[in-house]
């Protein structure tokens, strides 16, 4: 499995995307993130695990807990954008090419 697919899937979920954007703004702990999203801490931890596995964020131990940072090595700015662009384009292409040539009545 490539990292691209994992990253794409990871950001497909709105809550995960929100968490990712919060971490991109500045590094945060699980507790801090939990205070700002409408899901439980265990759900936040699950989302963080997915983001970590897909190399979008990384955890750094700080005291008793982890602080989450954007993973600068997991993402190429442009590459990530292109990845999303082509994924969207091909999905839309599939719809276009599979449309009946004559619209159904």
């Amino acid at each position: 499995m490539t990292v691209d697919t994992a990253q794409l899937a990871a950001l497909g979920d709105p809550t995960r995307r929100l968490i990712f954007e919060m971490i991109a703004e500045r590094p945060r702990s699980v507790a801090e993130i939990t205070r700002q999203v409408p899901v439980s801490q265990s759900a936040v931890s699950q989302h963080l695990k997915v983001l970590r596995d897909s190399r979008l964020v990384r955890a750094e131990p700080k005291g008793a807990s982890n602080v989450y940072h954007i993973d600068p090595h997991g993402l190429g700015q442009m590459r990530a954008w292109l990845d999303q662009f082509w994924s969207k384009t091909l999905t839309a292409y599939k719809q276009a090419v599979e449309q009946p040539k004559e619209p159904s009545p």
């Binding site: 500045r26 600068p72 700015q77 999303q84």
Partner: peptide, 25 residues
């Protein structure tokens, strides 16, 4: 520019551009 944003973890200027494009996406 294609590559990872060095030091981006501490919130340098690379990320806002990325996120803006990302948000538009």
């Amino acid at each position: 520019g294609w590559e990872s944003v060095r030091g981006g973890v501490d919130g340098d200027k690379g990320w806002p551009l990325y996120l803006r494009n990302f948000a538009e996406l």
